[in-house]
Design a protein around this nucleic acid. Structure first.
Lengths: 346, 346
DNA sequence: CGGCCACAGGTAATCGATTACATGCGTGGC
DNA sequence: GCCACGCATGTAATCGATTACCTGTGGCCG
């Protein structure tokens, strides 16, 4: 591969001049053209490794995602990558697979590569490597999941309004015995969703007793299915169930079907996190949709602020309720259209 | 951040000695311990950028995936990442979003970062940047999708046996009017699947006329839905449809449902590519499952062979038929179990 | 007791870029 | 006509590691 020296030789100038031409500082027309010609002839491309070593900037961001196979996070990662690339940064993605250990491994690998900044949707609640990153002075922004006590801004969605609408929606439809399948205990954001929903229901005079709030052991369809089983086995089974994650909602759906029950006639089902295939299930699921792509772009912007040394506040974007048919309402006229267009040319 | 010089100073030795201790060449007990102590005290981590510059090896692989939001590719990427990490390599993932242009952009970025090897599941048929990679001598392995005329091994799945089983399955169930929704024209692997299926059907005396083979304009639910609409509008509509990609199958399913038709009573539906949520649709979809994780690990191994300068042959792994309920057979006893376990702790 | 060898460990070159500083040339002002 | 200033460009240091080569010490053998 051609180096800057080869280009300099070919153009009959020094390496400094080549560098200056390529970085747009000075150089007069004649020289400039000779250099560019040499670059073209040799197919020269600057070695970003060398550049990074010298400038101490890699123009690379790191993203550690809690579970890459979860479609919510896939879309988030995609949004982050696009925005980063648009702004001239590469993105290195690390998958934590919902394991705190693997997350630490990924974070350390990224720090070793001297990325300019780090985005993390943390798998556990905090971790040693996260603190190391802060200590090392690497700009850090949390994504979707907060980590209590960590000095880093967090970009996430907030469900107050959407959960308020959901409570109203359920009340209107006459549902009186709601239940919630929440994320494993200790997940701060799951607790928040639960409390907001509880408060919203209370506003309509609907109670959410403890026996109808079940924490799944993990964020998986299996966990969701098991919790739904327990709920349906209750002496007074719920008439509406909210699952605070898309995979758990999927498992819950399986259990309802396996029992031959109908949605929404026998029980309503709502998911937190809207993912493309919720529009394709039978019936299409009503969901609290996080503004996924906006979360991604906003996280990149926040991180760049921090990289440039500015303070950046946490960002809370409102989620919105997407009404489909799993709670019993008639489909709105645009629902069929939505099915057709939602994925676009994905 | 501490550098090797800081460590050397603290341990009272030269940087060469530190490097040797850390890389396991020589160094006697006493010195060794002083160095390791200094490393621990300073929290020193080698700068991989500097190391890469010196050694001309980044210990990084690149993966350009045709569409990260397609769950088949997500799982493939996850498998590749895990195997790469296990073998001491980092993985940089680039998403092409099914655009040849973006793919070239991603490939060039990866080449600039001097990755040791490149894995590509090509979006278009060939591209300038792919040829540049080969010309630059970067070890290259194609994944899932071949590129005719490119001097690089390809790791992919092959459906002969599975499609043979599928043809037999359909014949047994009395289906006589099969149809196929294929990928956009010019996708080599789509053509192959079609021809294998056609041959297998012929073995059972079933014809596959041209009017029942439709090429979708893109790999999306929208495209699949449109093709299914055209098929169902045929004077003699098909009684079994194979979609050669999971997203198109999803769209096809939507169209069947929107018309109030039943699967499998009115029409059977089969997908090429098994993805986790096919076990959760209603009914669960019969699918030709590619050995996704094996494809990923095998691709990494092939690439490492090439990186170490050895020749490496292309790899063809057999796909297998996963019978669920979308063709009309009774569910086998283990199907319920499968629904529960398939995603595991995903 | 002297010489040689083995080996730990230091010195310095190197990877490919950026960039501070030096140099030299041309031009404009007095 | 001379000096100074500005600007294009070259020289060389630098980033943080690895590694070829050199040095010095100690042990062993003759």
């Amino acid at each position: 591969m051609a180096t800057i020296k080869d280009v300099a030789g070919r153009a009959g100038v020094s390496v400094a001049t080549v560098s200056r031409v390529l970085n747009g500082r000075s150089a007069v027309a004649d020289t400039r053209e000779r250099v560019l010609a040499a670059v073209a002839e040799l197919g020269y491309r600057p070695n970003v490794v060398a550049r990074a070593l010298r400038t101490a900037r890699t123009r690379t961001l790191g993203l550690v995602i809690s579970d890459l196979r979860n479609p919510f996070f896939t879309e988030l990662a995609d949004a982050v990558e696009q925005e980063a690339r648009r702004l001239g940064y590469s993105l290195v993605i690390g998958n934590a697979g919902e394991s705190a250990e693997q997350q630490d491994d990924q974070i350390r690998t990224l720090l070793d590569r001297r990325i300019d900044g780090l985005l993390v949707s943390s798998a556990g609640t905090g971790s040693a490597a996260l603190r190391e990153a802060v200590a090392a002075g690497t700009p850090l922004v949390l994504l979707d999941r907060t980590v209590p006590g960590l000095a880093a801004p967090c970009v996430r969605a907030e469900g107050r309004r959407a959960l308020g609408e959901l409570a109203a929606h359920l009340a209107t439809l006459g549902r009186r015995r709601p239940a919630v399948i929440v994320a494993p205990a200790g997940t701060p954001i799951g607790e928040e969703r639960l409390e907001l929903f509880r408060a919203a229901l209370a506003g309509h005079g609907i109670a959410l007793p403890a026996e109808r709030v079940l924490a799944s052991p993990d964020l998986s369809p299996t966990g969701g299915r098991r919790m739904m089983r327990a709920l349906l086995d209750l002496p007074e089974p719920p008439d509406a169930v909210l699952a605070t994650d898309n995979l758990m909602a999927l498992g819950a759906l399986d259990e309802v079907r396996a029992r031959g029950l109908r949605i929404p006639a026998d029980v309503a089902l709502v998911a937190f996190d809207d993912v493309p295939w919720f529009a394709h299930t039978d019936p299409p699921l009503t969901a609290v949709a996080q503004p996924t792509r906006e979360l991604g772009t906003s996280a990149v912007h926040t991180l760049l602020e921090r990289i440039e040394g500015r303070e950046a506040p946490s960002v809370l974007l409102p989620a919105r309720l997407v009404r489909r048919r799993s709670c019993g309402e008639q489909p709105e006229p645009r629902v069929r259209e939505e099915i057709r267009e939602e994925r676009g040319s994905a």
